[in-house]
Design a protein around this nucleic acid. Structure first.
Lengths: 111, 111
DNA sequence: AGATTGGAGTATACAATGTATTCCTCGCAT
DNA sequence: ATGCGAGGAATACATTGTATACTCCAATCT
């Protein structure tokens, strides 16, 4: 019963993954979100969202290609990637928003 | 426990109200949504959302100023308006999205 | 070596949001 | 008066958002 709908947070996570390019580790994504969206995100919330995105086929990941042990607490980190389906979902969503924003710049730009 | 967060659908409804300007009746808003977002919206879903937006103080409304009886089935229709708080929420949300989209045009424009 | 610490990820639980179906009421047409 | 259509409200349930509370593992402390 996929509602072919993508939640706002899911959308932001997807975008943050793209922003991180080749370094899309959960933790980095989290930092990106706090930076761009200006709000804090608990780890649990983020992983939960990744699970759902994965279930929908919007992201996939691999287990830390080269260096299996980063710095402290060496641990296999997952590196995320947005799938083509994920990109498509983002496009749809963006297109709708752009349409709805059209002509409202005056009101929405202030502050 | 207001999560200071605005869902995607709520956001779209708010925008659609603005788009309708002085004619923001539920039904018109619904049409606008179907047009811009390209998806159908049941009446119940829309009213439910209006309730929540009102509870958050993002919209208010009045009962059909001049003509209490439109065309058929004369009935008091509610005319919605986005409040200042609603505008602010939209600005915050838009600003975050714009930041996250930055630099991704190449990937997101296609299709 | 055993205990401790801290990072990465998982599980669980619950609140908020999204969405449809059903029901109610009011006028108008018949 | 009866039936139909339109606007709206209530109800109910699925999905999404979010936090807290673990589990694991390796490096460090002692």
């Amino acid at each position: 019963m996929a509602p072919s709908y993508i939640g706002e947070f899911e959308q932001m996570v997807l975008l943050a993954v793209l922003q991180q390019g080749d370094e899309a580790y959960a933790i980095e994504v989290r930092k990106e979100l706090e930076r761009s969206a200006g709000r804090s995100v608990s780890r649990g919330a983020l992983y939960r969202t990744f699970d759902r995105l994965e279930a929908k086929g919007y992201v996939d990941w691999e287990l830390e290609a080269g260096n299996p042990v980063p710095e402290r607490g060496g641990h296999p980190m997952r590196k995320f990637r947005v799938t083509e389906a994920g990109l498509e979902a983002l496009r749809v969503s963006r297109s709708a928003l752009l349409k709805l924003w059209r002509g409202l710049d005056t009101v929405l730009d202030g502050s």
